[in-house]
Amino acid sequence: MTCDLHRADLSAHIDGALSPGERVALDEHIAACAACRTDFASLRAVKHAVGRLSSREEPPGAVRARVEALRFSPPRIRRHRVAWSVAAGLVLAAGASVAFIVTSRDSSLTGELADILVADHLKSVPEAKPVEVASSDLRVVAKFFAGKTPFEPVVPALPGAALVGGRLCKIEGRHVELLFYRALGETLSLFVADRPLAASDCRAAKGHTVCGTTRGAHTLLLVGQRPRAELRALLDGASL
């Protein structure tokens, strides 16, 4: 064998990743080959040099606090009422305010949440104020949210609905997507959050309908004036 054939093995040997047979054969070669002995020592020095770098770093205090708080956060399914973001009067960057209050036992939207979502829908639709990103292209709109939301942005395709655009919202300090679609003869608002909320039903509020669903780690909440059966069909047909 030539030394070229040993190069990959030298590194693997340092890491203890060779089989016993390979190790014995390579050790015999290293004992007889000065060049490979030198290479072996150099590669081991490289490993030690990298190993001297810091493998642990302290996160900012606020990050540590939030992470450590997760151990006390409720499991996804609980037998009692769960309030997620009940901060009243939350002022959102986009001028919309959203608070989520859900009851996980029956997976129902609360009336308070539905009222707030409808109010935000009315304040934020493109007819009321310009959108922050105007495009019918799902990728363009998703790209707008990239880096702005603390989760991988998703812009669902709703069956028979045309995407208009979107704007950024904030929930309890965390940004979420607010998307607008034209369908069923009106403009619909779709809130996309990263929390696995239990929000699988529909509720009437202020002459509108609010329907929710969860897709993986995302929660989708659709607001419009059409009957719940029509909104539910749109939401159930959403493809991410």
Binding site: R7, L10, T38, A41, S42, A45, V46, H48, A49, L53
Partner: peptide, 19 residues
């Protein structure tokens, strides 16, 4: 090919140089 050099010279390098 691995560059031939003294292993102890690498051991003396600091974190900035390794990074």
């Amino acid at each position: 090919a691995v560059a031939t050099m003294a292993a102890d010279a690498i051991e003396r390098l600091d974190a900035r140089e390794i990074n």
